[in-house]
């Protein structure tokens, strides 16, 4: 049994990538999914109030955060974004 568990762990380790090193001046590229009615409105208000945040955050508007799908999050990471922010 111990062998099986060990083998399974080895497979797992070999399929999971080691964490990447991040450069010192790194700012994460973040994609936000925001509900039209609340989080998107909040992002607008941040602008109206001239509040600042990292310009590498971009927002995709959804009719409701309930619309958010696994595929959107996985695809974003697959394509290389560093973080996903879902707000609603």
């Amino acid at each position: 049994m111990a062998d099986v568990a060990e083998a399974a762990e080895q497979i797992l380790v070999s399929t999971v990538e080691a964490p990447h090193d991040t450069p010192a001046d790194w700012t994460p590229n973040v994609l936000a999914f925001a509900c039209h009615y609340c989080a998107f409105a909040a992002a607008d208000l941040a602008g109206v109030m001239r509040l600042s945040y990292s310009p590498s955050v971009k927002i995709i508007r959804l009719p409701c955060t309930g619309k958010l799908d696994h595929i959107h999050i996985l695809s974003a990471f697959e394509k290389g974004v560093d973080g996903v922010f879902a707000a609603g």
Binding site: H20, T22, P23, W26, P28, N29, L31, S56, K58, I60, H72, S75, A76, K79, G80, V81, D82
Partner: peptide
Amino acid sequence: MIDAAVESEPGVL
């Protein structure tokens, strides 16, 4: 949209 976002600003990877 995700593709376009990444195209304009690739992540650390």
